[in-house]
Simulated scan of single mutants.
Amino acid sequence: MIRYSLKCENDHSFDSWFASVEAFEKLHAAGMVACAVCGSAHVQKALMTPSVRSARKFAAGHEPEPDQAANGASAPTKSENAAHPLSKPQNAAEELFDAMRRTVEENSDYVGGDFAAEARAMHAGEKPERSIHGEAPLSEAKALLEEGIPVTPLPILSKRKRN
């Protein structure tokens, strides 16, 4: 496993684990690596510091895996995983964001890329009104607003697109 520090076009920084350098490159090339904050797929590796063993770990015999040491990454220990599981919010801001995401997902229907069409159909009275969330290009979201259709951009990725 290798951990990369990543940064999106909106200057959000986040870390993500990958099976290998090749796995990162393949996922990145396919546009499947997205910002954990805003969902942007325009992500690049951020400047990283190499993983350095402390004298205490060296004395205790904790050797990093050779390929991890070469890549400047180290795997978390079991105690580090227990203290900071990747699937759990790490601070108050992440907890609030996670609660907002859960509330939206539990109280609205996910319509995916059909968001703009569904919103227009509901606004025109062709479909019953309900709370929906989904995906739309920025230009389409602006067009909805210009048409008087109330929409709000949310920094939420579909479950399929989450890292």
Rank of each mutant, 00 (worst) to 15 (best):
M122H: 10
R120A: 08
T152W: 11
L96S: 13
G148C: 01
R102I: 11
N91P: 01
P153H: 09
E135Q: 05
G134P: 00
A136G: 06
L138P: 07
K78L: 15
V151I: 02
S79F: 05
A119C: 08
A141W: 12
E118C: 13
I149D: 00
S108C: 03
S108G: 03
V104K: 12
M122L: 08
A82N: 13
M100Y: 12
A117G: 11
N81G: 02
P137Y: 09
V151C: 02
L86T: 09
V111D: 03
V151M: 04
N81V: 04
H133G: 05
E135K: 04
G134W: 00
I149W: 02
E80G: 06
A119D: 07
E140D: 14
D114W: 06
A117D: 11
D114Q: 14
A92H: 08
P150H: 07
A136E: 10
P85D: 00
S131K: 06
S79R: 03
L138I: 07
A83F: 05
F115M: 01
A75G: 05
G134E: 01
K142F: 07
E140V: 14
F97S: 05
L144C: 09
P89W: 14
L86C: 07
E146T: 04
D109T: 15
A124H: 03
R130T: 07
A141R: 15
E146V: 03
A99W: 01
A82R: 13
I132N: 10
K127H: 11
S131R: 06
P150Q: 08
I132M: 08
N91Y: 10
G148R: 00
Q90I: 09
G112Q: 01
S108V: 04
V111W: 03
S74N: 12
P137M: 12
S74L: 10
A117I: 10
D98K: 04
A141T: 15
E95S: 13
R102K: 15
I149H: 02
P153K: 09
R130K: 13
S108R: 02
T152N: 12
L96F: 09
A124E: 04
P128D: 12
K78H: 12
E105N: 09
N81H: 06
A136M: 12
R101S: 07
N81A: 05
P89K: 15
N81Y: 09
G125P: 05
G125Q: 06
L96Q: 14
S108F: 04
A141E: 15
T103V: 10
P150F: 08
E147T: 01
E118R: 14
N107D: 12
T77P: 00
S79P: 00
S74H: 13
